[in-house]
Design a protein around this nucleic acid. Structure first.
Lengths: 199, 199
DNA sequence: GTCTATACTTCGATAGAC
DNA sequence: GTCTATCGAAGTATAGAC
């Protein structure tokens, strides 16, 4: 497993193609579709190249995860800096392909320790940022943080968007409208939309 | 894939052993650990027996799912008939092995259509029952169903317990206490615990 | 009715050729 | 620095022996 064979450089164009192909497979078909052969096939390359650029499949998965995390970080910063951060965050986390990728990594975590460690660190990092942002919004609006602690609200919104996206992907829609109504009611309370003035 | 070879009878003891072994692997190691070889190994049987009792791995997964669903149905009925159905339901759905199994089936659904159909049907069935039960509780307590529609509350509680169990399994605990506080506050509103009288 | 010998495919990984 | 020939293990599934 841990050999000392030579590997391709990180800046390689081919390496980037493999990561992209793996990411696509992950989102479109799930993590079990991500095999060296399938990845190479999608990138129109030879299967052995996967193991030239990545010591193991674990390493490939982690490369995919880190690339996705970097991209998400940029969007995340934008969202938290928006005029209505809660609404922006809600929009961001309602993205289906992002959530699909995330769920696949969570499924992977159960049998790939390296992946699990990566996920825990990343989830904790983003949640910490979000809690601070949510706390600011709640404070600004004078919302009772006894009833609605910022950390609880943050995790709550994350849990809801994950569930809705997951179920929608499966083809379940029962009660979604009603849950969205509750969410919207809360968002309206925390970040009221401009009441159309003047008419 | 669809052959006409002979299969073992459904009442077979060996068949039940295989289902049990597959279920254990599913919960303990995830669905990818459930291969014909691994299942047989755990049951101390020959790998080929899996394909004697099940036409395909899909069929084995469905057998595991149906057995779990039957058992869950019994517990579910008990919970909904309890004095405080919302609390009972919350307890039931906070069970970690049940949720783990469920999450694995959801992960499976992305590449096994037969499994997906099974999940959608089952989820819709249970949710329908739960919504009716939640509606009764909310009505009895006179809770504003404009702000908290029964369907929304039902899905909300399901989303929360799923998220908490999943994250706990991964090793993430940030903000869990705070979310639990919100849940308990709601449960106290909908189903107040007996205030200790007389002192 | 029950089980096994066996076929064929795909997997991750490595050593060595260019 | 880049790629390929090749290996051994594990995957699903079937036809045929008991």
């Amino acid at each position: 497993m841990a050999s000392d064979r030579r590997l391709g450089v990180e800046s390689s164009k081919v390496r980037a193609l493999l990561v992209e192909a793996a990411d696509q497979l992950m989102v479109e078909e799930g993590h079990q579709a991500v095999s060296a052969r399938r990845v190479a096939e999608r990138a129109a390359l030879k299967p052995q190249l996967v193991h030239y650029y990545f010591r193991s499949m674990d390493d490939l998965f982690i490369a995919v995860f880190r690339r996705a995390t970097e991209r998400y970080l940029a969007l995340h910063e934008q969202a938290l800096a928006a005029p209505q951060p809660l609404r922006a965050l809600w929009e961001l986390n309602s993205d289906s392909s992002g959530t699909k990728r995330n769920m696949e990594f969570i499924a992977l975590a159960s049998h790939r320790d390296a992946v699990r460690a990566e996920i825990v660190q990343s989830a904790t990092f983003f949640r910490t940022l979000q809690i601070a942002a949510v706390a600011r919004v709640l404070a600004a609006r004078g919302i009772d943080t006894e009833a609605f602690p910022a950390a609880g609200v943050t995790l709550l919104m994350s849990a809801i968007s994950r569930a809705l996206v997951t179920e929608t992907t499966l083809g379940i829609s029962l009660a979604h409208t009603e849950l969205l109504a509750i969410v919207n009611r809360f968002l309206e309370l925390a970040e009221p939309r401009e009441a159309a003035p003047g008419h």
